[in-house]
């Protein structure tokens, strides 16, 4: 179980950095947005990992069964909000990319800079 705990945090770091790499290194604007999405999902994993209680269950009461151990509801609430914020940012970003394609004819950052330089 201890191994699983450590593994969760290491996977969080790895996925975070994969997403971050895609955002900074890739040139295609949609690829950057995809990377941003992965980057944010890793953060969600961090919060939910810390909310888990061993032997616990989802924090929903059941009248028949009492005396249960529950996992922490607060990070779940925060991440619900964060997921919605993430999709809103993605939607807006995609709208911008569509407009860029219409105005510049390309969605590759280096080509856009080239066009603006002329």
């Amino acid at each position: 179980m201890e191994f699983l705990g450590i593994y969760y945090y290491w996977v969080f770091v790895v996925v975070l950095m994969i997403g971050f790499y895609a955002v900074v290194a890739k040139v295609n604007l949609i690829k950057k947005l995809i990377g941003l999405s992965i980057f944010q999902s890793a953060v969600f994993l961090l919060y939910i990992t810390m909310s888990k209680v061993s032997g616990g269950t989802a924090p929903i009461f059941n009248d028949e069964i009492t005396g249960l151990l529950y996992s922490n509801p607060l990070p779940q609430v925060l991440i619900l909000t964060a997921i919605v914020v993430g999709i809103s940012t993605t939607a807006l970003g995609l709208g911008i990319v569509v407009r860029i394609k219409e105005e510049y004819g390309t969605t590759e950052e280096n080509e856009i800079q080239e066009i603006d330089r002329r």
Binding site: F20, L29, L36, T89, L92, I100, E103, Y104
Partner: peptide, 14 residues
């Protein structure tokens, strides 16, 4: 403004 705001969006979200 569009590439400028895209960069702003990426850096702001990070």
């Amino acid at each position: 403004a569009l590439p400028a705001v895209f960069k702003y969006l990426i850096m702001g979200t990070i």
